[in-house]
């Protein structure tokens, strides 16, 4: 009897572990919604004028940041008051700009881990949207995001998560196409079309066109087409300047939450393991009426 019980427990554990390991990576690949919108950032065209940084702050009504000596608005990274920032990457001899904002992943880690859906991927536009009413401020999204995008307003007694939502508040329902659902201020003010807004499909075509037109200018790959399960913000980089040198993580093809979700759903497949465990425990406890046998 004892052996059996022990076996039930150990068997359950082993099965769960095996299922977890076996199912990892077996999760189906998500596709972006057909009307998904996004942005294309062309690092070779960016001149670092930071019109996008200033306009983003203005349009999102974000407070100014101060440098360490308290002088000036000089954000070094995304933060609770900065949703968009231009940084400088260097490979030793050459430099390139990098625009950082939410990537609007096709299969986002942040929405995968958010407990009750304060962060949610819009099923039509694919924009990763934030609703503070469902946010408890646990900051798991910050832990999960491979791009370090969601930020927290640490200095506030009533804090929130701050991240780019593609200026969906600037959408104009009167217009047709992508502008009807969002209108990123950064893309609007960019003087060199280094940041372009549009549908993801259209942007992929535009990126391929740019590469085809000037193959010597670009790396042939488009970052975000496949990376991390795909992102809705796409990047082009100068030939010989890799995306990793540009500061973008090397995620491979698979979506970031693929492994964790597979393990989690493997263990809790149909809630079978917990239910079996509970039944076994109940039987075991009942066998002796919940009391114990002094040995």
């Amino acid at each position: 009897m004892k052996l059996t019980r022990r076996q039930i427990l150990k068997g359950g554990l082993a099965a769960a572990g095996a299922a977890a390991a076996g199912r990892a990576g077996a999760r189906e690949r998500r596709q972006p919604p057909p009307e998904a919108v996004g942005m294309l950032y062309d690092a070779t065209r960016c001149i670092g004028c930071r019109a996008c940084v200033t306009k983003c702050r203005e349009e999102n009504k974000l407070p100014f940041e101060r440098s360490a000596d308290g002088l000036y608005d000089q954000p070094v990274d995304l933060s609770g008051s900065t949703k968009n920032v231009i940084r400088l990457a260097s490979d030793g001899t050459r430099t390139s700009f990098l625009k950082a904002q939410c990537m609007h992943c096709v299969d986002p880690a942040c929405t995968s881990v958010c407990m009750i859906g304060a962060l949610r991927k819009n099923p039509v536009t694919g924009i990763v949207e934030y609703d503070e009413n469902g946010c408890v401020g646990c900051r798991y999204c910050e832990v999960a995001c491979a791009f370090n995008v969601p930020k927290f307003t640490w200095e506030k007694a009533v804090p929130r998560i701050v991240k780019c939502e593609l200026c969906r508040h600037r959408a104009d329902p009167g217009k047709s196409g992508p502008l009807a659902v969002a209108n990123p201020a950064c893309a609007e003010v960019c003087p060199r079309a280094a940041v372009v807004y549009g549908t993801r499909a259209g942007l992929l075509a535009e990126a391929r066109r740019r590469i085809a037109e000037e193959p010597g200018r670009y790396e042939s790959r488009i970052y975000g087409e496949e990376d991390g399960g795909g992102t809705q913000v796409l990047y082009l980089t100068a030939r010989g300047f890799s995306f990793q040198q540009l500061g973008l993580p090397d995620l491979g093809r698979n979506a970031v939450p693929a492994v964790s979700e597979s393990v989690q759903h493997g263990i809790y497949y149909g809630m079978a393991a917990p239910v079996v465990l509970f039944a076994a425990a109940l039987v075991a406890v009942h066998r002796r009426g919940g009391t114990d046998d002094q040995e």
Binding site: M115, I116, G117, A118, D131, G134, V136, G137, H265
Partner: peptide
């Protein structure tokens, strides 16, 4: 950070409307 919203977590399915704020089993 937003501890006053904690009560929503155990009862989220009761207040789920239009796909907002249900339990995310992922």
């Amino acid at each position: 950070g937003r501890y006053w919203n904690l009560w929503r977590v155990p009862v989220a399915p009761l207040f789920s409307s239009g796909g907002r704020f249900g339990w995310n089993f992922n």
